[in-house]
């Protein structure tokens, strides 16, 4: 069971307290109606799915309840770091 650092609680807690929430830094467009079908498709469905370093969202669902971002290596499953939602990509 992975240990994850919650940047809001500033504490390392077991994976059981967290829920994965998909790739990070995919902002909802300010005006979806202005987007073409192709652009909307990209926002809705197209994900990076890298082998290696992945910026992704987690929620400390059984803790403080906050969503935050993390960098995890998809090969080794190791967390490199976590940071608060709204902070720039790391």
């Amino acid at each position: 069971m992975i240990l994850i650092h919650c940047p809001y609680c500033d504490d390392i807690r077991p994976e059981l307290e967290f829920a994965y929430a998909g790739e990070a830094h995919i902002a909802r467009p300010a005006d979806p109606s202005a987007l073409s079908d192709a652009e909307w498709e990209k926002y809705l469905f197209i994900r990076a799915n890298p082998r290696g370093r992945h910026n992704e969202r987690w929620r400390h669902v059984h803790g403080c309840g906050r969503f935050f971002n993390a960098v995890r290596d998809t090969v080794t499953d190791k967390f490199e770091l976590t940071y608060k939602a709204g902070e720039p990509r790391k």
């Binding site: 929430a21 902002a27 909802r28 929620r59 669902v61 906050r66 969503f67 939602a85 709204g86």
Partner: peptide, 13 residues
């Protein structure tokens, strides 16, 4: 609740 928290915290903070 999870979905609403998601939008509230990350899209429209």
């Amino acid at each position: 609740l999870n979905m609403m928290e998601d939008y509230l915290q990350t899209e429209w903070p």
